[in-house]
Design a protein around this nucleic acid. Structure first.
Lengths: 341, 341
DNA sequence: TTGAAAGCGCTAACAC
DNA sequence: GTGTTAGCGCTTTCAA
């Protein structure tokens, strides 16, 4: 934007309004509005004249006024967990990048809300204050306050992940099948005693992964061994201990539910001089860049978080426009076999 | 909120407006408005009656209408780098948490904008569309388009970091002094050949850290050795190679400009069987959770990113309210000596 | 101390 | 095809 344009777009230092445009062109505000929105009948000539003028003069409609008039905000809410660890970060960041990429191509902007497992007041405020036209919940819990609240609120929303609640639009990778496939493939590689180390079972994703793991064993003709399944391991200490226990109990391969668990397992093994894959094999249900540079390379299940974000956002935008959408949208996954198994 | 309140707060399923409140109380909208805003004269009795009523009925003023009337949006923009390699950095997330914490205690919400080094169209759109009352730039570049654009725009903004541009409100840790202190302390520990590995010199922070490093050597009576200073190392490969070169050139200690660099250095050394601190010592100019659990613990400089976010946000809010603020606000740092040096 | 009325910038019936 | 008019929900003079 050069200086000339800059100056033209203001009127005594203030932004120009639709009235200024109308007046300058000697037509009514309605006509200008129609030219811009494309709604209603309007002569092709006038339409072009208006469009040309607003382009030259860099006129931008005021979203506040527009919002007030048609009861829309042109904002969506990206609700991310406030409690997370570094290892979850890449996931949410990539999802968010997907969301932003989609909104950039539309009239929408993204309002941020941090939600806690036990405190969703931030989300509530944004929704109650009518500051957004829809919301994306970045993760789901087994018993999820945000989901319940959003259902009551009546405004469009989607979740990234799955939920037991009915009638909720969900965008997810098919965790159960993915983990089932992954597990059975590892069994095919000759491993018979698979251990599982997982995080909090308040998270739907952890429950699903565990389920997939068990199914994977079953279809391989193995029985899940409860003593080799360690769940709700939150601290790095607990994770490390679970890993050591798995080894003492004779596990030949440990599957970690996520990268954080995998990372702490590796650290503990390094400390205890347990070699991968010599003493025990190792795999992870999710691969981020953290593990990407590890030695040895970790066998893992890979998803595309950015695509999740994009799909979630596109779906939400459709809902806001009143279009029908599928309740459940599944995205793919890839299995990446490496030296660690 | 129980069901009764829930129902009271709606009128045929729609949110109640200021008119509804006025009507119900048999007073004018003006009076209701005054009771809420606290501006203008109003009888104590009526004021309390109104406040009581809106509380019971859960009335929330519509920010769109409010915004249109007094030309405010009650949103601020949090502009973060969109580059892929910063996605995983906890730094920006923690800053953001600070920003959100502050806004939560006010009427403001946070609008997100991803900015690229060479493309700030997202920021421009948000500002041009008047969707925010102010913006926080999460990092600064040596030649920063966003800063220049924001200066022109005329709307309040602050930067986290430093900038050569004049009259820009900056919130930063004193990187130069911090890195200088840190470097000289490491020299005092008996190290004579310090290598530096740094990221892009388009970032102000990297330039400052390098400067601090050089000053630290000088005040310790050492001369910076150009061959031991590796900058603009972006990819994990380049970083690893620089680290290997530093070792072959006889460095006794390597200082990494940030965690990502430190992480990749560690990974490479692990691969090449170079021991820390046995073969070479290692330190980082910034410590995040990345390194927190590393073995051996990494000597590092520690900042408080959340505090940066909080301070930046508070400062911006003051500016929006027309208060005067200091141009440069310095936050502290701590040196944390660990086994790696 | 309170209220009537105008206006913020835009949209959408409803006329013409 | 275009304009008039009445809002959207709130704030703010200006009177009373």
């Amino acid at each position: 934007m050069d200086d000339t344009t800059e100056k033209l777009s203001k009127k005594n230092g203030k932004k120009i309004t639709i009235s200024d445009v109308a007046e300058a062109l000697g037509i009514s505000k309605t006509t200008v509005s129609r030219a811009i929105s494309g709604k209603g009948r309007i002569g092709e000539a006038t339409r072009r004249r208006v469009l040309e003028y607003i382009k030259v003069n860099n006129y931008k409609p005021n979203p506040m006024a527009k919002g007030l008039a048609n009861k829309k905000t042109y904002n969506i809410c990206w609700a991310v967990p406030a409690e997370y660890n570094v290892y979850d970060l890449p996931f949410f960041q990539r999802c968010m990048a997907g969301v932003c990429e989609v909104t950039m191509a539309t009239d929408y902007d993204v309002l941020l809300s941090q939600v806690y497992e036990d405190n969703i007041s931030g989300l509530k405020r944004i929704v109650d204050n009518k500051k957004v036209d829809g919301v994306i919940l970045a993760r789901t819990l087994v018993d999820d306050q945000s989901v319940k609240y959003m259902k009551e609120s009546g405004i469009p929303f989607v979740v990234i992940g799955s939920t037991p609640e009915n009638d909720v639009i969900q965008i997810d990778n098919d965790q159960i099948n993915a983990c089932c496939d992954f597990t059975s493939l590892i069994v095919k590689k000759g491993n018979r005693h698979l251990a599982l180390i997982g995080g909090s079972s308040t998270h739907v994703i952890n429950v699903s992964r565990r389920k997939g793991f068990e199914e994977g064993l079953m279809i391989s003709g193995l029985k899940p061994q409860p003593e080799l399944m360690f769940v709700d391991k939150i601290t790095d200490r607990d994770i490390g201990n679970a890993a050591m226990d798995a080894v003492s109990l004779g596990a030949d391969c440990i599957i970690c539910m996520d990268d954080r668990i995998c990372y702490h397992t590796i650290m503990r093994f390094r400390k205890e001089n347990i070699s991968i894959p010599g003493d025990v094999k190792l795999a992870s249900f999710y691969n981020s860049d953290f593990l990407a540079t590890n030695q040895p390379a970790i066998t893992s299940l890979e998803y595309d978080p950015k695509e999740l974000g994009k799909t979630a956002c596109k779906t939400l935008l459709k809902m806001i426009d009143g279009e029908a959408v599928a309740t459940k949208i599944w995205l793919g996954y890839e299995i990446s076999m490496k030296e660690s198994v």
